[in-house]
Design a protein around this nucleic acid. Structure first.
Lengths: 136, 136
DNA sequence: CGCGAACATTCCTGTCAAGGAATATACGAA
DNA sequence: TTCGTATATTCCTTGACAGGAATGTTCGCG
């Protein structure tokens, strides 16, 4: 029982949050491919133009996060998307949906105020337009 | 015009994808706090129990990603949530929503098949339950 | 003008993760 | 049984990033 609790804690530590797993572009590309249809590892290697061990390691991370399942077909391993864990990301976004839907007018007013400030030729170095490079 | 194109490319390179920005838990906590209301930097420092330069650096990353805006109030800087860039994450999730809604039965059947395999006392080391630690 | 407060930036260090190369393991075919 | 194929794992290197400490910059107040 005690050992079980320890193992559970270790699992939590070793597992990465879904967002951290998705932060790596290669893994998102893998998920996008699996969204179309199941893929064997070799197919993913070809589609991603990556080396086989790299793909294999990303798949291991995705398995650990529960985002894919795998079934053996002779010596091939066929990977399948398991989208359920993405729901936690969807849930995290829920209050932000309200933020971008409900506060759009407030944001527009804020940005308009900034524009007015710019029109007065007052530089505002701290409030950067997202398309503008940070001048560091 | 040519210089503009170069600058745009540099911007793309320097900017991080929204997902990469969100992969760091401290930045998500900042956004969660700003979802409640605007905060000055010092308030974020207190709420997060982090050192001020660390918070400041995260805010810089969030500004670069366009996820926050800032307005000066004397020597204080008040940060405001700007949720719009999260829409690209929401858009990325759209086809996956269909995947977890529409394919639930297919996944259930898949998992049931795995359970049946387990019942035959055939270990399946590659298809891990998400709550189960990877035995590496 | 000097000082304190608030915050941004710089320098440095340590940790972690991605990818390459080599290697190990499992399966099917001959 | 051997061999080729497919894939997982291990070891190593490198670079990116988070956070601490120090420092710089800006503003308001007296």
């Amino acid at each position: 029982m005690f050992a079980t609790a320890i193992m559970a804690t270790m699992t939590e530590v070793l597992e990465r949050q879904v967002l951290e797993v998705l932060a790596e572009p290669s893994r998102r590309r893998i998920l996008d491919l699996l969204l179309e249809r199941d893929h064997a590892v070799g197919e993913l290697v070809d589609a991603l133009a990556m080396r086989q061990p790299s793909v294999s390691k990303h798949l291991k991370v995705l398995r650990s996060a529960g985002l894919v399942t795998v079934r053996p077909e002779a010596q091939r391993r066929v990977y399948c998307l398991r989208a359920a864990p993405l729901q936690e990301l969807d849930e995290w976004l829920t209050p932000y949906r309200r933020a971008w839907a409900g506060r759009l007018d407030a944001l527009e007013r804020h940005l308009d105020a900034l524009d007015a400030l710019d029109a007065l030729d007052q530089p505002d170095p701290l409030d950067l337009d997202p398309s503008q490079e940070d001048p560091t």
